[in-house]
Amino acid sequence: MKILFVADPLEVFQTYKDTTYSMMREAQRRGHSVAACEPRHISWRSGGVVTAQVREIRLTGVDDDWFIVTHEGVKALKDFDAVIMRKDPPFDSEYFYATHLLEQAEREGVAVFNKPAALRDHPEKLAIMEFAQFCSPTLVTRDAQEVRRFHAEHHDIILKPLDGMGGMGIYRVKADGLNLGSITETLNRDGATSLMVQRFVPEITLGDKRVLVIGGKPVPFSLARIPQGTEVRGNLAAGGKGVAQALSARDLEIANAIGPKLAARGLLLVGLDVIGDSLTEINVTSPTCFQEITQQTGFDVPAMFLDALEAAKAA
């Protein structure tokens, strides 16, 4: 297959842990050709097709100079066998526009994973609303008084923006309510922006588990991202320590209930965030942790992903 990865600039990849890099490496190992572009390189003109300024690359296996550009130029996306959308959040206006360009490329004949319409329909914080039976008590609102009432009921809460990633903008407010008003004003911009509030789950000390679901099937190991020191966030980007572990019975229950439904909607790769027994987020834009799980357990997550990709193309 000829595979195009739509991603962040190749020059910023941290190859020792980057999931997109591990996908590219496995694709090349299987004999597929690998190309890359950024969302800003994609364009469309009436009377024509969706194109992008593309770099065809070969991976070298060397950490510092990990890729060689073998060809560069404008190519139609429909000339690829598969397009993998791996641009990191934020899910801003430009990301939204990119999904529409990719959806047009789908109409022109290329298969895009994850499906652009499904990316739009499953914002990573709000997608849990469909599966509330697996979540801890949660509130989405702009209203500061609603936040105060939620705190009065649950006493120990987490507040976070709907468009954050990597633990950005997450706050904990305990029973004393210290700074609740100020934090709410910061996150909801004095009522202009919605935010999410969840009851604090004390099992965060055991890790914020990333449960990967590929082609509707759970990877048998999660990566528990464990907060360090006085930090409440387990995200690796916030300094959390990643420890791979076998899925619990509850992890499997959640993954088996959600995974097939999302796969049927065109979400080939999903990352469920589970703290204790509670689902907290559903990540669909660029779920990570492939390399950490593979290195610690020996289970080849990139191979599972390529198996699913090849099966999806053959279907």
Rank of each mutant, 00 (worst) to 15 (best):
A111H: 05
M1K: 15
S222H: 11
P220E: 02
V173Y: 00
M165N: 07
F96S: 02
A36E: 05
R107Q: 10
T141I: 07
K160C: 07
Q228T: 08
R142P: 02
A132F: 05
C135F: 11
Y21M: 13
R148V: 03
I293W: 04
G259N: 12
C135K: 12
G164N: 10
A244L: 11
H100R: 12
A257N: 04
F5C: 00
M24H: 06
A224H: 05
E56C: 13
R189Q: 15
L262W: 12
F67V: 06
K2A: 08
G229I: 00
L272Y: 08
H32A: 13
H122R: 11
K217I: 10
H154V: 09
R107P: 00
Y95V: 01
P89T: 09
A312H: 06
A238S: 05
M85S: 02
K261T: 12
E108P: 07
Q14V: 07
D81N: 14
N114P: 01
K174F: 01
V83H: 04
V232L: 12
P89I: 04
G164R: 09
S248W: 03
G266K: 09
Q133L: 05
A118C: 11
D176T: 04
Q14E: 08
L206P: 03
V49E: 13
D18L: 06
F200L: 10
D65Q: 07
L119T: 02
L309C: 12
G47C: 10
D121K: 06
M23I: 09
N114V: 15
E281R: 08
M196G: 09
E72L: 14
T141W: 13
A105M: 12
M24A: 15
A152D: 11
Q104S: 06
A82H: 05
V243W: 00
D307A: 05
I170M: 07
A238Y: 09
F80H: 01
H32N: 15
A105I: 12
G240A: 03
K174W: 00
M129D: 11
K2Q: 14
S248P: 00
E310P: 04
N235P: 01
A118W: 10
R265M: 11
